[in-house]
Amino acid sequence: MPDHVLKLPATFEAYARAAGDLRRMLEGRGIGLKPRYNAELVFEEIVSNIIRHGCSDHVKCAIEIGLRFEDDAIVMSFQDNAPPFDPRTYVLPELPRTLESASNGGLGLLLVSKASQRIEYEYTRQSKNHLTVTIALAGAVSAAAG
């Protein structure tokens, strides 16, 4: 069971409010600067992706974010009713070497993989994307997509 749950409609206005709630929650828990940044980064990339790519005028999305605080990790779960999307199957872009070759896509998921320890995904029987991202509270964080 999550320690905290944030629910929001898939709009950037609601996103801004929820991001502030998340920030206050992490500060209130005394989470260190690095894991706090990583949790906010994962939240930003996943939720903005859902709003931008998963939802549209035809698909009204609701997003639910659960946070569970463990001794050595923050476990963030994201549920939404957008079309199925397993980010683990997305081929991450190569790191760009020149301005001209820098791709416009995939950077957000690349940052999520670098900020997290583990990424799990399932498409539920209730037709929801359920993504779980584990963020280490201390020590090295390794790329985890897949």
Partner: peptide, 12 residues
């Protein structure tokens, strides 16, 4: 704080 949107803006 910076995320991919900010990086993309600078690159563009």
């Amino acid at each position: 704080f910076i995320a991919s949107m900010g990086i993309r803006m600078f690159i563009s």
